[in-house]
């Protein structure tokens, strides 16, 4: 199986997880989307040297992971896949910021390393939260919820079509790389020049398919938005989930939760 095949199967696995019946799955997608947005807002609101203060927020993804019955290895695979982007974003911090930020006994830790660790923590928290939202709700339901929460229609339409055609294009890309592999020496992967040509062809195929799909949509009265059949029902459980998570995020942000937990357990932060 080629890497592209594996990637397509991974994308499918999130949708398959979302189709299972779990307590988190039963919550209204709007509640889950709103809580995830609040969580992201809380994570990014911390200062760049506030690592310890951020740690209690790991309780949220841990709870959703458990209640949503999402296998941890699926989450770690995605985190590993996306980690180079976070590493790239923070790799120069230790070089640029060498002033001592904290001292751990005899060890002076430069601010650059602290902010680098902060970027990695934020990456883990935010990406986990979004992946868990997808794994416990489903991509299409998340899009529908965002639409109901006021996201622009054109953006939602783009997201939905992207999801639908991601699988077709990944199939097409997999077929092209397979055809190349069968005709290449020793079954090696394509070099950079061949990749450029494959990517160009894929782009042209995507453009052709886009034109044909647009014709099919126009033939059925498309007016710029994708109408939805889905109806949402808000319940008390959703209100409790929203209020409970919101309260926890406020406490984690302004209540010095990490220090209190540390005091409680006899550690000094």
């Amino acid at each position: 199986m080629s890497r592209i095949d594996v990637l397509a199967r991974d994308m499918e696995s999130l949708d398959l997880l979302a189709s299972r019946d779990t307590p988190v799955r039963r919550l209204d997608p709007r509640a889950k989307a709103a809580v995830t947005a609040m969580f992201l807002g809380t994570v990014v609101s911390f200062g760049k040297y506030e690592i310890a203060e951020m740690t209690p927020l790991f309780l949220y993804p841990a709870a959703i992971l458990a209640l949503g019955q999402v296998p941890a290895r699926v989450l770690f695979r995605y985190l590993l896949f996306a980690s180079p982007f976070a590493l790239l974003a923070g790799m120069f911090n230790p070089v640029l910021d060498r002033e001592t930020a904290i001292s751990l006994g005899a060890l002076d830790v430069p601010g650059g390393w602290i902010s680098f660790a902060s970027i990695m923590l934020r990456f883990m928290l935010t990406v986990s939260a979004v992946l868990l939202l997808l794994a416990c709700t489903g991509y299409v339901q998340v899009c529908a919820a965002l639409g109901r929460l006021g996201a622009p229609r054109i953006v939602i339409t783009q997201f939905l079509l992207l999801h639908r055609y991601m699988f077709i294009l990944s199939d097409e890309a997999a077929r092209m790389t397979r055809a190349h592999m069968l005709r290449s020496r020793d079954g090696r992967g394509p070099g950079i020049r061949v990749w450029a040509s494959l990517a160009g062809h894929l782009l042209l195929h995507a453009h052709d398919r886009g034109s044909r799909t647009h014709s099919a949509m126009l033939a059925r009265g498309f007016d710029g938005s994708l109408p939805s059949l889905r109806a949402f029902r808000w319940s008390w459980a959703d209100t409790c989930f929203l209020a409970g998570c919101g309260g926890f995020f406020v406490l984690a942000r302004f209540g010095n939760l990490a220090e209190r937990l540390g005091d409680l357990m006899g550690f000094a932060v």
């Binding site: 299409v140 939905l160 398919r209 799909t213």
Partner: peptide, 10 residues
């Protein structure tokens, strides 16, 4: 090509 015509999630 039915894949051109079937563009919705379900």
């Amino acid at each position: 090509d039915p894949d051109d015509q079937l563009f919705m999630p379900t």
